[in-house]
């Protein structure tokens, strides 16, 4: 029974991987924004990125 279930499960995993690859899934995180005004093209400063307040790592050991 476990083997049959596993075969079904494995087929589902492979199908999901194939579908994800076909649809262009990614593991990276990006923020989706809708209805960005066309004016941003001419006035880039009018767009406010959600990552604008990122606290930068100053690096080094």
């Amino acid at each position: 029974m476990f083997r049959k279930l596993y075969l079904l499960y494995g087929a589902l995993v492979l199908s999901t991987a194939a579908f994800g690859q076909y649809r262009g899934w990614s593991l990276d995180t990006v923020n989706q924004v809708k209805n960005v005004p066309k004016s941003v093209r001419d006035n880039p400063g009018s767009y406010r990125s959600v990552y604008g307040f990122y606290h930068h790592y100053t690096g080094g050991k």
Binding site: Q32, K34, V36, S49, V50, Y51, Y54, H56, Y57
Partner: peptide, 30 residues
């Protein structure tokens, strides 16, 4: 031994849909 940070937005000119993300490039050694 510095960093640069880039706020990116990939914007669809036709639909106004955007993908907003920030990336840091930094390299230190010593």
């Amino acid at each position: 031994n510095h960093w640069i940070y880039l706020n990116y937005a990939l914007i669809n000119q036709d639909t106004g849909q955007a993908w907003d993300f920030g990336r840091e490039v930094s390299y230190y050694y010593g």
